[in-house]
Simulated scan of single mutants.
Amino acid sequence: MPTENASKPLTLTEQARRAQLIGVAIDLVAAHGYAGTSLARIAEAAGISKAAVLYHFPSKDGVVQAAYTTVLESLIEFVGAAVEPHTGAAAVEAYIRSLVGYMRLHPTHTRMIIESLVAEADAPGGPGRHETMAGLLTAAAKVGDYRRGIDSQVTAVIVNGAIDAIVSTGLTDPAFDTAQAAEELIRMLNGTFS
């Protein structure tokens, strides 16, 4: 029986089934929330039995945690690739654009992240993103792109709060231009701290 800690590698069929179950869990949590996502609902959406789901994951929580991890890794990889070639204010701008862009392109992932953060206040990715933004802001101040006295911790909370507002508005109002809002946030940040 494959588990998270199995010693033998998964077959291609097992990998495909796990990926399918993770995708189903992402869609269900996005549509129904954690509480509305049951093992039976996951099995039904995947077209298999609950026992077959349990063959691949130890529980509903196991599937949902794997789904959350998949979403978070995808987000981090996307944003990291966008930020990595930049320094200073350009890195901050790449972070804002890529984070808002990712959320716009992947609304089910966004809803999965929001559901996880609501369900568990200390879920991974919550407070850590403030540290990431604070580091980018500090680096930008060191190279002279932002004023030296910037309070990176407070500004990180403010910027991430603005990103949250942009993303949540985009989820509830499809006509809202999240890319334009991200650009406006960048202009505000540059105008205030340059």
Rank of each mutant, 00 (worst) to 15 (best):
T178N: 03
D145C: 02
P85E: 09
L105I: 10
E44Q: 06
F176K: 14
P9E: 15
M188C: 06
I96K: 12
I166Y: 09
E77Y: 08
V79M: 06
S59G: 03
V143Y: 02
T13R: 12
I114P: 09
G126P: 01
T138Y: 00
D151L: 07
E4A: 10
T172N: 06
G101H: 15
T13D: 08
V53G: 00
T69N: 08
A46Q: 11
T155E: 08
G144C: 01
Y102M: 12
E183C: 11
L136C: 00
H109C: 03
V157D: 05
G149Y: 00
V79F: 01
G101N: 15
G23T: 04
E120F: 11
K50Q: 13
V63A: 05
S98P: 14
G80S: 13
G126V: 05
V63N: 01
R129Y: 02
I48M: 01
D177L: 09
M188D: 06
A134E: 06
A175R: 15
T110Q: 05
E93T: 12
I114T: 07
L12D: 08
I22C: 03
A81V: 08
V63Y: 01
E120G: 05
A165F: 15
A121D: 05
G80C: 10
Q153T: 03
A121T: 04
L117P: 01
A156D: 13
R111P: 00
I186H: 13
L117M: 04
Y146K: 14
V143L: 07
A165C: 09
A40D: 09
V118I: 13
S116Y: 13
H86G: 04
I150D: 02
F193G: 07
P58Y: 07
V154A: 03
D177K: 05
S59C: 04
K60G: 00
L21P: 09
R148W: 10
M133Y: 02
V118G: 04
Y95M: 14
E120N: 09
K8I: 08
E14T: 10
R41M: 08
D173P: 11
T132N: 06
I186L: 10
K50A: 09
D122Q: 09
A46P: 02
A182G: 03
A162I: 14
Q180Y: 15
H130G: 03
A25G: 04
T13S: 02
Y55M: 00
A175I: 00
A179P: 05
S74H: 15
A52S: 09
D27K: 12
G101K: 14
G80K: 09
K8C: 00
D122T: 09
A91F: 10
I150Y: 00
A179L: 10
P107A: 05
R41I: 01
E93H: 15
G125R: 05
T13M: 06
L12W: 06
S168L: 10
G36T: 15
A162E: 15
Y146G: 04
L171I: 15
L75C: 12
K8A: 00
Y68L: 03
M112V: 02
A119W: 00
A19G: 01
A89W: 13
I114Y: 11
S7M: 13
A89M: 13
L72F: 12
M1V: 07
A90L: 14
I76A: 09
Y95W: 12
E73Q: 08
Y34P: 05
V157M: 11
S152Q: 04
H130Y: 05
A6R: 14
A66K: 12
M1I: 03
H106C: 08
E84D: 05
Y34N: 11
V92C: 14
Y95G: 11
H32M: 10
